[in-house]
Amino acid sequence: MSASRGVRAGAMGLVMVVGVVAFTWPFLVTPGSELSQLGHSGDASLLFVLLMALLGLVLLSEMSSGHLDAKGVAVLGVLAAAGGALRVLSAGTAGLEPMFFLLVVAGRALGASKGFLLGALALLASAFLTAGIGPWTPFQMLCCGWVAMGAGLLPRSSGWTERLVLAVYGLVSGMVYGAVMNLWFWPFMGGTAPVGAGFVPDAGAAANLHSYAVFYVLTSLAWDLPRGLLTAALVLVAAGPMLRALRRSLRQARFDAPVRFATPS
């Protein structure tokens, strides 16, 4: 069993490495490499979209296959339904996505690996509900998974400190999510990005980072800041009772307690 767990951890790590590269390749590419030639025509974005669609399936199957029982499936399904419903209700309000509140709180209660699955599935369910499946879906699934996973990885704390830590995390993750999500289509914009804010394949990492920062401030900050603030405010107001309710229900969901026989004395 431990060997298969090692294999699973290795596979997950490798897929995450590919995922990080799929977002950050504009800064990693060296001038003159094959990818920088592909980057001129926008084909590099197409390559990463196809790659992420396949590797997303591999990751989901590695994380779930064979060790997710009926309770796990039902609890994940219901939490993903809540996330999907929140996203459907908030569709059309620019950047105000209360789904992030659920991801942060539930990721905290579920822990890192189940939290990742929840983030990915909540996004997938919302994409199914709004019939909005597209090349962006695998990237969004990975990002939402990271948001929920990060909440599970935060240091152990309780009471008000936990709430404050989660609120700060919600603010940061709401903004970082936008910064990371722009990256998948930024190179694809090619010549129509604003002057000084476009991707130039041969320019090197520092110049591209600078132009990306300009691009982010020009286009995306106005959407991401409200999302971060809303998440932080919701966490401050409602995270305490939500965490209590979630932890109680998750404890109920563990029906098969280990049976031990004590020798009569």
């Binding site: 199957s61 296959s65 499936v73 399904g77 219901v78 419903a85």
Partner: peptide, 22 residues
């Protein structure tokens, strides 16, 4: 694919429960 059976089931559960939660 059947290797994604659990995930598929979880998504079906989510799609069924989302309208009820609304």
């Amino acid at each position: 694919p059947a290797t994604l059976y659990e995930v598929g089931t979880a998504v079906v559960v989510a799609l069924t429960f989302a309208p009820q939660m609304v």
